[in-house]
Amino acid sequence: MRNQPIDFLRGTLDLLVLKTLSWGPSHGYAIARWIEQCTNDAFAVEEGSLYPALYRLEEQGLITADWGVTDKNRRARFYRLTAAGKQELKTSQEYWQRYTGAVSKLLVTSPQGA
């Protein structure tokens, strides 16, 4: 169980993508690798969910995309955080921290009656 990748909770992927892009523009492949790397491969980013998520975020105006060239001289689509995206990241981050804080607090508390 320990080494099994964790399934994403709803909305988590969007938050992780925004967080990743807050370090700078990046293409889809790099985003996926970055998330896996930062979490020590705890999250398995599936391409089948990543790309629709990217397009959705783009449609919502949180990120924009442009074709560019990688350092290996390959054409790739680079995503970048917009102002609205930065704002959204801030809000989601705070929400997420409150949420996880509350959940962890509950999990560490021992049952009183039993």
Binding site: G48, Y51, P52, L54, Y55, E59
Partner: peptide
């Protein structure tokens, strides 16, 4: 690793076209 990408592809195309 990638598996069948047809559905996600369609989804992306739909979103992008709309946009």
């Amino acid at each position: 690793r990638l598996g069948d990408l047809r559905r996600p592809t369609d989804e992306c195309v739909t979103i992008a076209t709309r946009q």
